[in-house]
Amino acid sequence: MWTKWSDIDRMFNAMDLLQNRMNRLFPDYGGFRGFPAAWDAFQTGPSTNLYDAGDHLEMKVELPCITKDDLNIKVQGNYLEISGSRRSDAPKGYSAHRVERGTASFSRSFTLPSEVDTDKVDAKLANGLLTLTLPKSEAAKPKQIPIN
């Protein structure tokens, strides 16, 4: 009995080891990051979510410490580009003890799953979270087919 237990134990240890190694190789794959990625030169851009709600697409972008003036959003057909820069909000006359929140400019582009009606795109920025509502163009909208 006891040898079996330790075998299981050993198997789990080996699996953990492998998982750790894989995580180190591919830090951005497989779910959420364990620690928020620093805003440094190595990061390609902010994290995004995309949802398909039938007649429109909804995108959410994590943009802390960014005002609407620092942000550029471009849409053309099914191409979306979000770029901007994060400025330092370091106060003057203070000495810094710890600076983890870097400053960086970023640009990220996406190919959306369908064409978008560019005139009706709506962008909202609240609490450091950008919500883009992208209505699909008429041709890309799902249509109910009546059965004769």
């Binding site: 959420f32 364990g34 620690f35 928020p36 620093a38 959410k60 994590e62 943009l63 802390p64 410490c65 909000d89 370091a90 106060p91 006359g93 203070y94 000495s95 810094a96 003890h97 710890r98 600076v99 983890e100 929140r101 609490n127 450091g128 979270l129």
Partner: peptide, 22 residues
Amino acid sequence: LAPLVDIYENDDEILLHADMPG
């Protein structure tokens, strides 16, 4: 998750900025 923070200090106060998007 631990949020990223900046900590600053001057003669009067300590300032703590933490990123908590959303």
